[in-house]
Design a protein around this nucleic acid. Structure first.
Length: 578
DNA sequence: GCCGTTTTCGGCCCGACTGTTTTCAGTCG
């Protein structure tokens, strides 16, 4: 089992937590956290870099010591530091730090006084009212701890974008009724279009903050007020989602938006950059000593710092600041660039609308084409098509196309990649199609090598056009298939296979990091909705968000082409292969 | 533990809110 980047990041974060308990130098702790972030955001496997003998100290925040530790982790060696720390503090930190309000210092006090090692110990101690008796703890804290434990037991997940949207937009509408408010914007990971959001961050500019704060905490859906101040308040909605509100003056709007949008690591680099110039950035503006320089817009701040404007989706400290310095940021794809949808189901298999209805709805969206891509026979639950049924379907599409003006239904299929890497339908029928979308729908848990081999073999089929939802993950539900994405991308590049960015909010597969990795390799993408009804077409905006997070430009995406260009492109791909 | 256009030593992003508080540490984003 190869070591994944997130495994390395987890170990570094664990060391950081334990060092914190140990009362270590905070900057040493930060070094471990920074390194964890670097590794997590890496577009290549660190294990692969080690194998290739690359110099890891070239990575930001990785020096000789941490490079050695990464190498040891990759080679399965024990990390003595971690082992010793775990021996010294045998506490389940990942577990305990999930309780808001409990940090390293308090966890250590609980461990020293009551031998609390995990949430179960904590719950028991709280129930036995032992915690309130500790110095620096109180009845109130104990009650709070018990409440938080109950919440965690109810299972807590990050919220998908559409659900966050469902709760965020009504709050915005509600707050907007307040005449004191000038500007209002949802910031945070929501604005960065991260695939899930932890909480909803709202930024407001206004004259009278106390009135806005009062309105906010009195919102109907508020179940609990976590904190309430003059400029910052936090509440939990009845739905369980946390909403933070931050209020600033108009002249600080840009600075606050920058700060509140994050990401945290992007902000840190921005602040360091300011510091190098003897300035200071905070949520109120860019300052030289006490003197306010700029702050009303994000653009002004970036400009003053010598950077071109960085789109929110890029603000992850994955090279965007360096690119902005050199004026080499990508011109990110936009919703309006999309000219058609290349992954569409109908009620012939598991969709809800007819092909005619799907075509009509697509035309209303201003599209030039869709690809009809039903499931293939292996997916029996979805009534997948066999060769004969697909042949009939092709005839139907030909007939429909005769009557369509300025719109084309491409003949396609979403064919299963079988366990051995063969495709679920014979080449004889696949070659009759305009487009072949291939996907894994079963045996998600094959060992890494077998899963990789399965895909590589499938990609050798000359009719393989698009690899749909490549890892087949379902956010918060199913782990991504374990496969060597780098090897798969190399093959995709070689064989002109296109990678899908599936726009279903529960999939968003490829993820942002893989998008960037593939883009850097020169691979093309299809941003598709995998629509099973006409309503699903609107999900395209989530796919666009993910693509933008992956630095993708219109030119990288085949369904930004008009139908003539697209057909030419698909034909070229086929000719090259056969 | 990392890092270097003042530095190989001495820095390391910045501020709000809470409560164990009345001046500050701890936690969070």
């Amino acid at each position: 089992m190869p070591v994944r980047n997130i495994d390395i990041a987890r170990i570094f974060n664990e060391i950081a937590d334990l060092l914190e308990i140990d009362g270590e130098n905070p900057f040493r702790i930060r070094a471990y956290r920074n390194a964890a972030m670097t590794i997590e955001n890496l577009s290549q496997d660190a294990a692969e870099l080690v194998k290739q003998g690359e110099d890891l100290t070239k990575l930001p925040g990785i020096g000789h010591d941490l490079a050695q530790k990464i190498e040891d982790i990759v080679n399965g060696k024990e990390i003595n530091l971690l082992k010793n720390l775990e021996k010294k503090f045998p506490v389940d930190l990942v577990d305990l730090t999930r309780i808001p309000g409990l940090g390293a210092k308090k966890i250590k006090k609980l461990y020293d006084a009551l031998d609390i090692k995990n949430i179960d110990d904590l719950a028991l101690a709280a129930q036995q009212q032992k915690i309130q008796k500790l110095p620096e703890f109180s009845i109130k804290t104990e009650k709070h701890i018990l409440e938080e434990i109950n919440k965690i037991k109810k299972k807590y997940n990050r919220t998908s974008l559409p659900i966050a949207e469902k709760y965020a937009l009504p709050i915005i509408e509600y707050l907007k009724k307040n005449p004191n408010i000038k500007n209002i914007e949802i910031a945070g990971s929501y604005r960065r279009k991260q695939e899930t959001v932890g909480d909803i961050d709202i930024l407001v500019t206004c004259e009278n903050s106390s009135k806005v704060m009062k309105a906010f905490v009195n919102y109907d859906e508020v179940q609990e007020i976590l904190s309430k101040g003059e400029t910052k308040s936090s509440v939990i909605l009845k739905s369980g989602i946390q909403v933070d509100l931050r209020v600033v003056h108009q002249k600080s709007y840009g600075a606050a938006l920058l700060y509140f949008t994050g990401s945290k690591s992007h902000n840190i680099v921005i602040r360091k950059l300011a510091k190098q110039k003897k300035w200071k950035v905070n949520e109120y503006g860019l300052f030289e000593g006490e003197k306010f320089l700029v702050g009303e817009s994000e653009e002004e701040i970036y400009k003053k710092l010598g950077l071109s404007y960085i789109e929110p989706e890029l603000r992850e400290n994955r090279g965007e600041i360096e690119a902005a310095m050199k004026g080499k940021l990508p011109k990110l794809i936009e919703l309006s660039d999309i000219k058609g949808d290349l992954h569409v189901h109908t009620k012939l298999t598991d969709g809800r609308n007819s092909l005619e209805e799907m075509a009509e709805a697509a035309q209303k969206m201003g599209y030039e084409y869709i690809a009809s891509t039903e499931h293939s026979k292996h997916l029996t639950v979805a009534k997948g098509l066999d060769a004969q049924k697909l042949a009939d379907h092709i005839k139907k599409i030909n007939k429909l196309n005769e009557n369509l003006k300025n719109f084309t239904i491409l003949k396609g299929i979403e064919v299963d990649i079988l366990e051995d890497g063969s495709l679920d339908l014979p080449d004889e029928i696949l070659k009759e199609l305009d487009i072949v979308v291939c996907a894994i729908h079963y045996k998600f848990n094959l060992p890494r090598e077998k899963q990789t081999e399965r895909v590589l073999r499938a990609m050798d089929n000359p009719y393989f056009n698009i690899f749909a939802h490549p890892t087949s993950r379902l956010i918060n539900e199913r782990e991504p298939c374990d496969m060597d994405m780098e090897q798969i991308m190399k093959k995709a590049k070689e064989n002109n296979c296109i990678l899908e960015i599936n726009s279903q909010p529960s999939r968003l597969d490829l993820n942002d990091i893989h998008c960037k990795m593939a883009k850097d390799m020169g691979i093309k993408f299809a941003i598709s909705t995998d629509s099973h009804s006409i309503d699903n077409y609107n999900n395209i905006r989530y796919g666009i968000g993910q693509a933008r997070r992956g630095w993708i430009e219109a030119n990288d995406v085949i369904n930004t082409k008009n139908i003539t260009e697209l057909k030419k492109l698909l034909k070229k791909i086929i000719n090259k292969k056969v």
